[in-house]
């Protein structure tokens, strides 16, 4: 017991064991959605209840936790989940990708390559990639079991027919080890190549939908496409205005009401580390004291 009324990391040991079993099954069958009996968490659905439960089941007292929301460590969602585990598990927290052992994320994969021993936990709103065209859960489960994935390409076909190119830019469907089609959660397709052959364990938790799925280290993950419309991760034609990075995923920031704007790394840790190392972009200001 680490606090009055709460077990370590909020969930009771029985629940954590149940979630770990689901995680192990997910790792054994990469890309397969394992049902689990998600608990009510002290936060609303859509705020990462699935990810929080997976993180809770993975955390050890010696872990160092990082939480990001769209790449940033300092947004409401990231801050409150980080505080939640500081209070219920008393684990150390960090904003550094390299220093963290467990990283819970919403909608991004950190820019810095992950290493063996790290766990990346994704928050997933809708785990079923086929739901867009086939709303019946009984039918989509059967389609997964029989590997009937033609429908997934219908979605991409509709994109090209309507927009001239595959316009899906986030939650871009992937095929895992040539078997299961998987929704990578709403990460930008820019991050899709990082899913494949990753040294860390990647876990996906959907609380409302009560599903967990996983990618063990070095899993082959291929983004779906057509022969004549190959997958393109895309990259905004700008550099980071703060750290000058040419290869990172950028956020557009409106700076005034006269059309002024700047582009900055969505991964705040990445940007801060680069600036600390002396890189600087078009609009770089001096680093605030005490960061990095």
């Amino acid at each position: 017991m680490t606090g009055p009324g709460y077990n370590f990391a909020y969930l009771d040991e029985g629940t954590k064991r149940m979630i770990r079993r689901a995680i192990l099954k997910g790792i054994a069958v990469p890309g397969y959605q394992v049902p689990f009996s998600a608990r009510e968490m002290p936060m609303p659905y859509g705020w990462g209840t699935g990810g929080v439960q997976v993180t809770a089941a993975c955390l050890l007292p010696e872990d160092r936790l990082k939480v990001i929301d769209q790449g940033a460590d300092d947004t409401t969602n990231a801050v409150s989940i980080r505080r939640f585990f500081e209070r219920t598990a008393h684990v150390a927290t960090t904003t550094s990708t390299t220093a963290a052992t467990v990283i819970q994320t919403r909608h991004r994969i950190p820019e810095h390559p992950l290493r063996e021993g790290q766990i990346l936990v994704f928050q997933v709103p809708i785990p079923e990639p086929l739901r867009f065209l086939e709303p019946r859960e009984t039918e989509t489960r059967r389609m997964h079991s029989l590997e009937e994935y033609g429908l997934m390409h219908v979605k991409l076909y509709e994109d090209i027919a309507r927009h001239g190119t595959i316009a899906t830019s986030y939650a871009y469907p992937v095929r895992v080890e040539g078997r299961y089609v998987m929704d990578p959660s709403p990460i930008p397709k820019f991050d899709n190549p990082r899913l494949s052959d990753c040294a860390a364990i990647q876990l996906f938790g959907a609380g409302r939908e009560q599903r967990i799925y996983a990618l063990p280290p070095h899993t082959q993950v291929v983004s779906l496409d057509f022969e004549d419309h190959p997958f393109d991760p895309g990259k905004a034609p700008h550099d980071c205005d703060l750290c000058g990075a040419v290869d990172s995923y950028l956020d557009e920031v409106i700076t005034d009401d006269r059309g002024g704007r700047m582009f900055v790394c969505s991964d705040t840790d990445h940007c801060t580390c680069r600036r600390a190392a002396g890189h600087s972009g078009r609009l770089a200001a001096p680093l605030p004291a005490g960061r990095a």
């Binding site: 033609g150 429908l151 390409h153 057509f226 022969e227 004549d228």
Partner: peptide
């Protein structure tokens, strides 16, 4: 067609 493996848009 896609269900039987066609992958050329």
């Amino acid at each position: 067609l896609m269900a039987v493996g066609a992958r050329h848009y």
